[in-house]
């Protein structure tokens, strides 16, 4: 499959193995027990599962935050290890889960973005970096005045927009989003999902989307892998897997999704003008 942007083969991650001081072997915790998946260019791929299933560990391996015990990751035809050169690093970026802890608290938004741009030689000068930072903020729907403010000044939704601006700053080919809306208020989630969808289209991004929320996956993704206890138990197009799950676990997951009763309200033709 030559058109695959990312291929993951037999990826294993064990935590806490090795030996004790007395030479006794410790039993490692197997967070990933050899998973395989691949993502085509331009595709939105989801990994769903419950906490502890290993989905975040998989995401961290892909972005290079977690060493794998075994297995290989191939990106654009070349192996992608834990230690990466600048171009490899730039090509895979991440949107984090918690907008309240994912922005450097003591740095201004513009300062952090400009640092990222300059360290990675996207922009040569301070001025160019600042200008580019302003453009990035505009792309995610934030005013340029945000440049000189610290994260504290923003709401959760705004912070997540800034987090997305940071993730796309290095013009990645693959964007990994680890539960990007689960820490946000319900009324904000839709706008962040819409933003991700728009950016994916406009920038031609490939997305790896980690979530426990099937409704969100249904909205945003093309294919889905269901993980349980460090293994992928079911994989396929979202429309098939979520409509006709084969595995018992997937069925339970679907049954547990809390669905709302249908709204019995006519949609508004056009919102009336604001006073």
């Amino acid at each position: 499959m030559a058109d695959q942007l990312l291929e993951v083969k037999d990826l294993c991650v064990h935590f806490g193995g090795g030996r004790t001081l007395l030479g006794k072997k410790k039993v490692p915790f197997e967070a990933l027990k050899g998973i395989d998946f691949s993502i085509a260019a331009g595709e939105a791929f989801a990994i769903v599962g419950e906490s502890g299933a290993g989905k975040s560990t998989a995401a961290r391996c892909v972005v290079g935050l977690q060493k794998s015990t075994r297995g290989e990751i191939t990106f654009q035809g070349a192996p992608l290890g834990f230690h990466r050169d600048r171009d490899q690093r730039r090509a895979v970026q991440m949107v984090f889960q918690d907008p309240y802890s994912s922005l450097s608290p003591r740095m201004t938004v513009g300062g952090a973005l400009a640092e990222l741009l300059r360290v990675n030689k996207v922009c040569g000068t301070k001025e160019a970096a600042r200008e580019r930072a302003g453009e990035l903020l505009e792309m995610v729907g934030m005013p340029p005045s945000a440049l000189d403010q610290r994260p504290r000044a923003f709401s959760g939704g705004q912070r997540q927009r800034i987090g997305i601006a940071r993730a796309i700053a290095l013009e990645p080919a693959l964007l990994v989003a680890d539960e990007p809306v689960s820490a946000l208020d319900v009324s904000i989630q839709a706008s962040i999902l819409g933003l991700l969808k728009r950016l994916q289209r406009e920038l031609g991004l490939t997305m790896l989307f980690i979530s426990h929320d099937l409704a969100v996956v249904r909205q945003l993704c093309d294919r889905v892998a269901v993980m349980c206890d460090g293994e992928i138990i079911e994989m396929g197009p979202v429309s098939e897997v979520l409509a006709a799950p084969r595995e018992e676990f997937t069925k339970n997951l679907l049954a547990a999704a809390t669905d709302l009763p249908d709204l019995e309200m006519e949609p508004l033709a056009a919102p009336p003008p604001k006073p």
């Binding site: 989630q189 819409g194 409704a215 669905d259």
Partner: peptide
């Protein structure tokens, strides 16, 4: 309540159906 219900993804809605509530909650 209506806006909240419309902002939540459901089984049948697509992302185009979702309507984010404009603005942000008061601080």
């Amino acid at each position: 309540t209506l806006a909240l219900l419309r902002a939540v993804p459901t089984r049948d809605s697509t992302i185009q159906d979702l309507r984010a509530i404009p603005g942000s909650p008061p601080r």
